[in-house]
């Protein structure tokens, strides 16, 4: 059993606890044990903090990284926004001496030092990596195949972009998550402009909600054209934007889509036999019932 320090972030534990719960349980069935990262905070939000002062962003993310260094465990996380902060700051501080020294000067005041001894992973990439889990193992863990459902994938931005700094290959038309959806027995569905942003990032959701929802709405239109039963993603902030966002779109634009939005861990949980109650799907803004009826 591989062990990782589980960096929770904010939105998963505080808005979609089912995604958190599903992560522990699904990962365990695939040979990954997620350990508590005691005292971790917000990553902090790359859009908000990065925009205000990048030096604060580096220092705050470094504090979270040091907590895992002290545990001597790599970090696993389930949010693209957290990935941007935690992975990228780890990467930058490891390779940029001046930045690292600046951050350690700050951390000295709280008896911490960034050493650069651990790596950071998104749980989805661990699931996909055949050296760790791999698609075959995911397929073998399925108890309730999601047969007969059409599921679209939203990759989000900060996991794979900027491409040249990351290690995921193409960001124009990736298909690795579709493979992971197919492994659950569902039919992965392509749709127009799949890689378009959800619209929430960079502080835009807070700054200009209508503008940000208009981007989400464009995605929703493209998704409806593809006649999908559900949308899956690996970022609770994207999930919030699509899920609660659909309610806001209805209020602001007068259109309703009622498309269930599930984190990949929630979807995997369902396929591995977890009940909707165990996934707290009732906390979703958009009811998952129509999708669940097809599956269960």
């Amino acid at each position: 059993m591989r062990e990782y320090a589980f960096f929770l972030g904010c939105i998963a534990p505080n808005r979609y606890p089912g995604a958190e719960s599903a992560s522990y349980k699904t990962a365990e069935k695939l040979g990954i044990k997620l350990l508590d990262l005691e005292g971790a905070s917000c990553c902090p939000a790359p859009g908000a903090f990065g925009s205000i002062d990048l030096n604060v962003w580096y220092a705050m993310a470094a504090r979270n990284l040091v907590l895992a260094e002290q545990m001597k465990k790599d970090i696993a996380l389930i949010c693209n926004g957290c990935y941007k902060s935690i992975w990228e700051v780890n990467h930058k501080l490891k390779h940029h001496k001046e930045l690292r020294e600046g951050v350690n000067e700050v951390l000295k005041g709280i008896d911490m030092e960034f050493k650069g001894t651990i790596d950071v992973w998104h749980l989805a990439e661990l699931f996909y990596d055949p050296a760790i889990v791999g698609v075959q193992k995911i397929r073998d863990s399925v108890k309730v195949p999601l047969t007969g459902t059409r599921i679209a994938v939203h990759y989000g931005c900060h996991l794979m972009k900027p491409r040249k700094e990351r290690h995921f290959g193409t960001t124009e038309h990736p298909t690795w998550m579709e493979e992971m959806v197919a492994a659950l027995g569902a039919e992965p569905v392509e749709y127009r402009n799949k890689m378009l942003c959800c619209g929430a990032g960079g502080g835009v959701r807070g700054y200009d909600l209508v503008h940000s929802l208009d981007i989400t709405n464009e995605k929703m239109i493209n998704l409806m054209e593809a006649k999908v039963d559900a949308l899956t993603e690996v970022c609770p902030f994207c999930q919030l934007q699509f899920d609660r966002g659909q309610i806001e779109i209805q209020e602001k634009f007068g259109v309703s889509y009622n498309l269930p939005v599930l984190h990949y861990c929630e979807l995997l949980g369902l396929a591995q036999g977890m009940t909707p109650q165990e996934l707290a799907l009732d906390l979703h803004g958009i009811s998952c019932e129509p999708f669940l009826k097809k599956v269960l």
Partner: peptide
Amino acid sequence: PPTTHGFPKYVKGIQYILDYFEL
């Protein structure tokens, strides 16, 4: 959750960093 929510003593470190930059 077992974050600063479950262990509020860690909030001090965060406040130190934010105060350091007078944010």
